[in-house]
Design a protein around this nucleic acid. Structure first.
Length: 484
RNA sequence: GUCCCCAUCGUCUAGCCCGGCCCAGGACAUCGCCUUUUCACGGCGACGACGGGGGUUCGAAUCCCCCUGGGGACGCCA
């Protein structure tokens, strides 16, 4: 590989939710590669989707990556010579480059409504065509464009892609990839709200930030030709592309929160050590040696080569993670152990959070561990027989848990009031008796009938663990029902 | 449906690029035995894979082709 230029790589998370293990995975390989060649790692926040944007997400992402000990050289929190590092703050830049493409005849305004596009896609599906925009607005005359604009019609800017030929690029670990131009449609570059799409923002920023290697997940392979076309339209030098395999669920589909806990905070809360997490992730698609599976970040950097990447999509099966964590636990030593227990497990902030919930429910401190262990546990043992309220039929009950899970997932702000509102809304929707509704939730999340007030307890437990326990309960109930 | 990527034990993988040392090595999980006043830890062992078919070759897990299987993409999401 050519490393004449300083290696500059980036991670580009979008702040749309909880920090994801997939992000940690891709960050790890970017980090290792950057360190290996004394390069720079850049953190860039891709917040161009205003619908899904979540204000707290950026902080959570930074905290999670800090926890893992993966540090970057430039980013929104650190600054750097190529800032700003948040795409919403670069709004005007994208507009400028989009306009330039339009002026050069390499992009054009499109006035198609979402409704028309939806119809078009439906028709394509019926006729089993390959899909993609039908270039309806590509041939619009300047007069027609002016007329539409005068009417105040909303429009997007689309890239003008070739209709024939081949677009090729080289993936550093997969070799040459050729995609027929007919497979590439006229991608939207600038949305009607003026924000860029990933494709535009990503290419523009990677170029302006002098990124040399784009290391991202496999799911991007089919959009890479669009990016290649953009680099060519601008006359810019392309970075090298490396597409890592994607992490999988047990059924081998792309890892998803429906089928796997994917929040890094969940694993942190569970008591996974950051070194163990990195070590485990390093084993996904890469191997240290034929016989040794535990290694430090430094050792990984020393031995790392792209040549050793195994392209089969690894199943994110945490069974082994436990064992690896055990290994790091053994090496911890007395002081580190005490420190970890104090700072992570029994942290001041967590104890303060649960203090009002437990203090009037214990006579002696000896009651604490016995009655409130669920504040520190992971999975709970559920008595399935007592879970189902009398008079509720099992099918409805399952559907209730599913709806509950969904609401928990969607809940961005994990605060008492928000949780309460959410629960009440679901209760109203179901029309159940309050007791039939709250007791199962209490049992599923705390494992006992006599917990402190439910909503406050849920808030203290945190979204990750509540979510996990509900999904766990759901699968247990489903299995139980399938058997009987 | 169209295109693209991928393919070794249940799971993570070594070996593949540069064919013979591989009737395929390690780890996790599972099971058994040993150690042990318990449980763990530890030690030893068992189970367990080259998806199928064609080539090329003296010889293929390794190279080529086809099939099959899995995955991804086809959004004014990233």
């Amino acid at each position: 590989m050519d490393h004449k230029r300083e290696v500059r790589v980036r991670i580009a998370p979008s702040p749309t939710g909880d920090p994801h293990v997939g992000l940690a995975y891709i960050t790890l390989f970017n980090y290792v590669f950057a360190k290996k060649y004394q390069g720079k790692l850049i953190l860039r926040i891709e917040d161009t989707d205003r619908q899904r944007f979540s204000p707290s997400s950026q902080t959570k992402i930074i905290e999670a990556l800090n926890w893992l000990g993966l540090d970057w050289d430039e980013g929104p929190d650190k600054g750097g010579p190529y800032g700003p590092y948040v795409q919403s703050a670069r709004f005007d830049i994208y507009k400028k480059y989009a306009d330039q493409l339009v002026a050069d005849g390499k992009a054009y305004p499109c006035f198609c409504t979402p409704e028309r596009l939806e119809k078009m896609r439906a028709a394509q599906k019926d006729q089993h065509e390959h899909g993609g925009y039908d270039r309806h607005c590509r041939g619009l005359s300047p007069e027609e464009v002016a007329k539409e604009k005068a009417k105040g019609s909303l429009f997007v800017i689309r890239m003008m892609t070739p209709t024939q030929g081949m677009v090729s690029f080289r993936d550093e670990i997969r070799g040459q990839i050729d995609i027929a131009a007919t497979q590439i449609d006229d991608q939207v570059l600038l949305k009607s709200d003026g924000f860029p799409t990933y494709h535009l923002a990503n290419v523009v920023d990677d170029h302006l930030m002098a990124i040399t290697h784009v290391i991202r997940a496999e799911e991007w392979i089919s959009s890479t030709p669009k990016h290649v076309l953009l680099y060519e339209a601008f006359g810019w030098e392309k970075p090298q592309f490396i597409h890592m395999p994607i992490l999988r669920n047990a059924d081998r589909s792309k890892i998803s929160k429906r089928k796997n806990p994917v929040s890094l905070n969940y694993y942190r809360r569970k008591g996974v050590l950051p070194q163990a997490m990195l070590n485990f992730l390093g084993l996904m698609g890469w191997s240290f040696s034929a016989t040794c599976e535990t290694f430090s970040l430094t050792e990984m950097i020393e031995k790392f080569t792209w040549n050793d990447i195994h392209l089969g999509g690894p199943v994110f099966d945490v069974t082994k993670l436990g064992r690896i964590n055990f290994h790091y636990l053994q090496k911890m030593g007395e002081d580190a152990f005490v420190k970890h227990m104090r700072n992570e497990v029994f942290s001041d902030s967590y104890l303060k959070k649960i203090h009002p919930l437990v203090i009037d429910r214990m006579d002696l401190f000896e009651d604490f561990v016995d009655r409130f262990s669920f504040f520190f546990n992971g999975a709970l043992k559920l008595d399935l027989a007592e879970l189902l309220p009398k008079g509720i039929n099992p099918v409805d009950f399952i559907s209730f848990i599913e709806k509950l899970c969904l609401r928990v997932d969607m809940l961005e702000l994990w605060k008492k009031d928000a949780i309460e509102t959410e629960l009440k809304a679901l209760l109203t929707e179901l029309g159940w008796k309050a007791k039939d509704f709250y007791m199962p939730i209490r049992l599923m999340t705390t494992g006992r009938k006599d917990s402190p007030p439910l909503v406050e307890t849920l808030e203290a437990l945190g979204k990750e663990i509540v979510r996990f326990r509900l999904f766990d309960a759901l699968s247990q109930v489903k299995t139980d029902l399938a058997i009987s």
